[in-house]
Design a protein around this nucleic acid. Structure first.
Lengths: 217, 217, 217, 217
DNA sequence: AATGAATGAGAATTCATTCAT
DNA sequence: CATGAATGAATTCTCATTCAT
């Protein structure tokens, strides 16, 4: 449903389709290290412990591997997000969950963060063709929560819910980028904690800003 | 190997080094369109109206062209930013200027803006090696303005100025990305207007959020 | 290396070797459609309704499949041809039978005909190594009929029987090629009828030419 | 006009476009030796004394090289044929010229004969897509001469001029095939003479057959 | 300085063949 | 006997870079 590749003839095979997963994980690691373009297909294969040709049993081509990473992960994220967005909780609480969710996806996965925030943009073609639809869906979901907050009077209405959604996502992506790029001086655990703290601050700033219009009067 | 651009023996030359400039401008345009990797050296040459070989009279290699864009352009951007950051204006006013600057709304220097949002992520290798330091400097400059606002009591202090700076940049980048992804349905003028409006909304949301801590008490 | 097909340990087997036959038939079909090189072993397998690996239980390799087609089928064709050539009928009648035979109009053995016009030229290497001898035998048989006609005074003698045989075959091949190239505008039945008619005309032209020397005096 | 490739950016360059010719000649040699599919692009390059990449400056891809051989040669042949077909000579004389012409194309070029008669058919795709149109034009030209002979009462009318044209060409192609395939037992000169002689015989047989209908009454 | 034809290293992809099940 | 997932050698084609003019 959320996979794009038309290839996986296996799928149902028990131990077989975890090979697809293995390749995907290997690709995330090597893409994060060297970037999409600098990574050779044989690098992915070696990292996954399979032969070069095996990649092509599970993916159309190299592009498809990157796209699949994006689609698999974002697809899952959207699923959960949809549930969160529909919860019976105060909207600001739901916004906080969204933030945690987006960063939770990355929890301890600096490599995944780099692939999503950096690598995907290296190919504008891929980004536009495959990324845009999913990305738009994701943003619309966030925007709908904000819009609900606006209708209920919790959030200011002089800011477009879509603009706010984009800014929220962009801010998180900005934090993730710095986090991904940051050299390895500190240990992962403290880096994780730092990201979490930063995300919390950013969330409160955002929420206050979103409520802020009321104070203008 | 680690020092770059030992080539530009011209630079000082009179009319000749405007060819370097022409190549740089051409490269910014084509990189922005198709990305660093999808762009062939011959594309840059054609756009610049010179022969392929001519590129190599002014730059070491293709990487060097991208690096030079970073250094030349972000360097200039930082210069302007430094001036804006140091102005004798209220901090929130300065933050508004920074937003306009980054989106290229200021002085019609759209190309400068493109460099950051589009080119920054093109090559992870180059990004890490050459982009990161400059990028960090850029962010620090923004953070310093925010910090000043915090010290003067205008901005809340429970949010790290660096986190706020990253979020500010990320939000802008998010708006720019959507803007870039959005198909060419509308004309440029109305797209520009939409971006300007979105940027304004985002700025006010951000500033209110940044002041917001005060209302919590 | 130079002896081929040491594999078919089955051959004598009862019902199992009809699988070999099935593969051979399938190969003829797919080779005829796309050519030897454009056909993948998996295409043959799919057409035959067996697994890829099964092919290798009956044939050394892909080349061996083509060679086997030559040997099995052209062998049979030559057998039939030999019978026709030796019949107790007027030579011109026998020439007419040969034409029908080669075009597969005789006894509905279209597949036999395909072997020569379609498969003969598929691989120059194999053609030279395995096809040429059989092909020569085939032509010699035709030439022998013509030579017989010459000796009995029915056919002119100022034309080499071998040259005539080659020309006869070539003409038929030319008709078949046009027939194969002709897009699928008409239905198979009418295409068949057209080929039959063309073959008849060609046969009479050829026979008259072959008798023609008598008029020269 | 008769070249298909959209590549040759050079063309007018003096000494430059003979490189295209050099590659073409080299390709004819190596295709004839090993066949189209067995020949690697690097083989062509080596034979032509150029780098692999140079091939791609003059041709789209490997297919294009084969197509270009066919188109260049057949294209030229058609030009001359058109002149011959329109001459003010007896039709049978013109048919003799056509035969000489078609074989003259191959004069001493066993390799070219093999490429045209054997290699082109190895790829039904190429043959159908590019060969068919030119081939049809060529045949129509021959058919028009035969039709003229029929209208003037020299040739029998119970044979379709198109069928006759195909048979004529096919017969010649058949002779050329045997000639190309024949091992190298004799020297080239005597082989050439043999081909010429065979062609003459075939021509007379064909012409007599084409007149033959008149004797049937 | 400028040119652009030529180069050739490098990478993606295909597909015949194998072999564990 | 049969299968078909896995393999990896082989090949085409691209494109950054060079260098003779």
């Amino acid at each position: 449903m959320n996979t794009h590749s038309s290839k996986p003839k296996h799928k149902s095979g028990r131990g077989s389709s975890d090979k697809r997963e293995r390749i995907l994980e290997a690709a995330i690691r090597v893409f994060a290290q060297g970037g999409f373009y600098a990574t050779r297909v044989s690098d992915i294969a070696k990292e996954a412990g399979v032969a070069d040709g095996t990649i092509y049993l599970y993916f159309e081509n190299k592009d498809d591997v990157l796209i699949s990473i994006f689609q698999d992960r974002i697809g899952k994220l959207i699923e959960v997000l949809r549930e969160v967005a529909g919860r019976d909780e105060p909207v600001d609480e739901r916004v906080r969950r969204i933030i945690e969710l987006q960063l939770g996806l990355l929890e301890g996965r600096r490599d995944l963060a780099e692939v999503i925030t950096v690598n995907l943009r290296q190919s504008s073609k891929l980004l536009k063709q495959y990324g845009a639809p999913l990305f738009t869906e994701y943003l619309e979901l966030i925007a709908s929560v904000i819009a609900e907050g606006q209708r209920s009077g919790v959030f200011r209405e002089d800011v477009s819910s879509r603009v706010a959604a984009r800014a929220l996502w962009g801010g998180l992506d900005g934090l993730a980028l710095t986090w991904a790029l940051g050299g390895g001086d500190k240990d992962d655990a403290s880096r994780d904690a730092a990201l979490k703290k930063a995300a919390h601050q950013w969330g409160e700033l955002f929420l206050d800003g979103l409520r802020g219009g009321t104070h203008h009067a």
